[in-house]
């Protein structure tokens, strides 16, 4: 992370999150997280289950308060950023309101933000056109397929032009074919809107295909073990998935993950610092 002219959209410094539940032993979900995300970047968080990637996303979105450390978004504390509606969220499940039509679901955040009615309607339509659901305005969620529902969720998240889009395994429940199509769709939307996106996933191909940077995390405690710059040329399309550089980067991320992910039992014994070093070294070779 070299020096930048512009201030980062998200700056995490020394963030730690410890969960305590009743009289149980505390679980350290996140430890010593430092990360800057630049404007217009597409950053993926990847790691095995329990590595705290979703927790990290929620810390950025002020849905979880960190135990220690600082989260600065657009130059202000995360809680203020949330109140000023800087975030759009997309979850693994579409979380559509069953009782609202597709159009009304997209309007929901605009209602809460108190935008005028005419703007709500226009904006909802525009966003649904963007995700190619312009013909389904009056449908109810149950009448749509899983992929279509997730596109509605994306349209909803974008409807109020948030500074940052936080996506938590949005395509995790979809089949591989639909997932790849949705990947291309997200890239197209990202290129058109220029929104900063933080994207949690456990799919290596997805992370490499989409991102400008992939943040690799390890579990117990959740840490950042590597950050892989993805220098695949843009605009990317389905053909990008077949270039040698793509495969190289996929391998690089996979190896970064394997350094820790395969041996969870050894975690405490090995300690953190050496393994990170080794990962770095191998990454450099790859």
């Amino acid at each position: 992370m070299a020096s930048q002219v512009e201030a980062p959209v998200v700056r995490l410094s020394d963030v730690e999150k410890v969960f305590t539940r009743g009289d149980e032993a505390a679980t350290t979900a996140l430890e010593a997280i430092d990360l800057d995300i630049r404007r217009g970047e597409f950053v993926s968080l990847i790691g095995p289950s329990g590595c705290g990637k979703s927790t990290l996303l929620r810390v950025i979105g002020d849905l979880i308060q960190p135990t220690r450390g600082e989260v600065v978004v657009n130059g202000k504390p995360a809680s203020q950023a949330r109140r000023e509606r800087d975030y759009g969220m997309v979850f693994q499940a579409p979380v559509l309101m069953d009782w609202r039509t597709v159009q009304d679901n997209v309007r929901l955040p605009l209602e809460i933000l108190g935008r005028p009615t005419a703007q709500r309607t226009a904006r909802a339509r525009e966003m649904l056109e963007l995700v190619e659901l312009g013909d389904f305005l009056e449908h109810y969620p149950y009448q749509l397929s899983g992929g279509m529902q997730q596109r509605v969720a994306i349209a909803r998240a974008l409807s109020f032009e948030p500074a940052i889009l936080l996506m938590d395994e949005p395509f995790g429940a979809l089949d591989e074919m639909t997932r790849e199509r949705m990947n291309s769709e997200v890239l197209r939307i990202w290129e058109r809107t220029g929104t900063t996106i933080v994207f949690v996933t456990h799919s290596i191909p997805e992370a490499v295909f989409l991102s400008s940077r992939v943040v690799v995390m390890s579990p117990r405690p959740g840490r950042i073990t590597r950050v892989v710059e993805i220098d695949l040329p843009r605009p990317r399309n389905e053909d990008s998935r077949e270039t040698p550089r793509y495969f190289q980067l996929v391998t690089e991320v996979r190896e970064a993950l394997r350094m820790r992910g395969d041996r969870p039992a050894d975690d405490e014994a090995i300690g953190d610092v050496p393994s990170v070093d080794r990962t770095m070294a191998e990454g450099a070779v790859g």
Binding site: R82, R83, Y87, M89, F91, M97, E111, I112, L113
Partner: peptide
């Protein structure tokens, strides 16, 4: 659905808005 509450929170919605737009329906 807990995710629906998280969503409303991410919009900075008030408790009353959550009752009106999520809990009652």
């Amino acid at each position: 659905e807990p995710a629906a509450l998280e969503l409303m929170r991410s919009y900075g919605a008030s408790e009353w808005t959550v009752v009106r737009k999520v809990r009652i329906p």
